[in-house]
Amino acid sequence: MESSNSLPPGFAELEPFVDQWAISTEVERNRVRRNSSMEEIRGLYKAVEPRLSDIIEYLNEFPLDDMPDDARQLLRLAMSTMEITPAVELYRQPDVVHAFDAERVEILVDDPV
């Protein structure tokens, strides 16, 4: 896979999550969350959550608009973790338990990262 060394040094254990979860927009992150299993979602959460402070401290060294490619991939993984956090910490299923159809809610501000 071309993504075998896509993350910065020190974050190699997150490499298996890159293909599924290194996503640049909220629309796509939400779609992947709703179409993933809880096993996949918990896998990302369990890998990223203990390292989130390390990730932020690493990424905070770079300007948001001028980040090396490997740091940007790490940011995308962290952004997907923000998307799936409610599924793990609150709803215990991929999507909100009792909610209006997600496909009917337009996401109109969605700057790609």
């Binding site: 932020i56 990424l59 905070n60 923000m82 409610p86 709803y91 809610v105």
Partner: peptide, 16 residues
Amino acid sequence: AGELLAQQYSKVFARD
């Protein structure tokens, strides 16, 4: 990035 992630967490939570 830390502030961006906190924003994204907040947006997603509110949206849900």
